[in-house]
């Protein structure tokens, strides 16, 4: 069975007025289905860029990215959008909720772009996702009326609603107090236990400790890739090429 994600010699450079700024210098990495992996690194190390490429929001300059056994190099914008709509989802540090929309409307949003879920079933899916983060009683609230921790749980419900193969969490506790942050990480932990693959991008050691595997990135290269002592998952196939 192929890995969920396989990266080989991945490079990424940005060009500004023909000035090249290299961010990733050749990343080799494999991630299997069901893993809870944290990508750590200092600011500017390239961890967010790596997440954007893995989440099909950006493209590598060179190297190979294989997703579910398929090379993604030849895919056009619509193909990548289709993968984002059905296979991956995101939880952002800034939540990115629509402030004038209700919790339910925010969670319904990804279903507008999901071709496999009928319109009539959308609300059922959304309410199920909201219930799974414990916010059923807030479904009719405007997202602007929620606390930071609740907002992030709504963002997690939104990420869950399409039942994606992979969830990216980009500094999910960065804007939260420690109690709310803990709640959010516990929700992510539960999701992983339920079979969701989670890639966590963070610079906080305590947050990263929730993951089974921690990949350190520095200056666009993987510095280390270690399994967590705390929560090593039986059978997780962790490799560093």
């Amino acid at each position: 069975m192929p890995s969920l994600i396989s990266l080989s010699g991945l490079h990424k450079s940005y060009f500004n007025d023909e000035v090249e700024t290299a961010v990733l210098h050749g990343i080799d990495l494999e991630i299997d289905t069901g893993e809870f992996i944290a990508i750590m690194g200092p600011s500017g190390s390239g961890k967010s860029t790596l997440m954007h490429i893995l989440g099909f929001l950006d493209r590598p300059t060179a190297g190979t990215y294989t997703f579910l056994g398929e090379n993604t190099a030849g895919k056009n914008d619509d193909d990548l959008a289709a993968i984002r709509a059905t296979k991956v989802s995101f939880v952002f540090q800034a939540f990115h909720l629509l402030p004038r929309a209700t919790v339910l409307e925010n969670v319904l949003l990804p279903l507008l772009y999901h071709p496999g879920i009928a319109s009539i079933d959308r609300e059922k899916y959304a309410r199920k996702a909201i219930a799974s983060v414990g916010l059923s009683d807030r479904a009719g609230f405007l997202s602007s009326q929620l606390s930071g921790g609740q907002k992030q749980r709504v963002a997690i419900a939104r990420a869950l609603v399409t039942e994606p193969a992979l969830i990216f969490a980009d500094e999910p506790t960065g804007n939260l107090d420690s109690a709310s942050g803990l709640q959010v990480m516990e929700v992510l932990e539960k999701l992983n236990a339920a079979g969701h693959t989670i890639i966590l991008v963070t610079h906080e050691r305590t947050t990263a400790e929730f993951a089974d595997r921690i990949v350190h990135i520095k200056d666009g290269l993987i510095e280390s890739d270690t399994s967590s002592h705390k929560r090593r998952k039986a059978g997780a196939d962790v490799k560093l090429k």
Binding site: G55, L57, D77, D78, A81, A82, R84, A85, T86, S89, F90, H96, L98, L109, P110, L112, Y113, H114, R158, T162
Partner: peptide, 12 residues
């Protein structure tokens, strides 16, 4: 940006 991250195509 969010809508695109959630799977919206440029056409959408």
């Amino acid at each position: 940006g969010l809508r695109k991250a959630l799977g919206a195509r440029p056409r959408d």
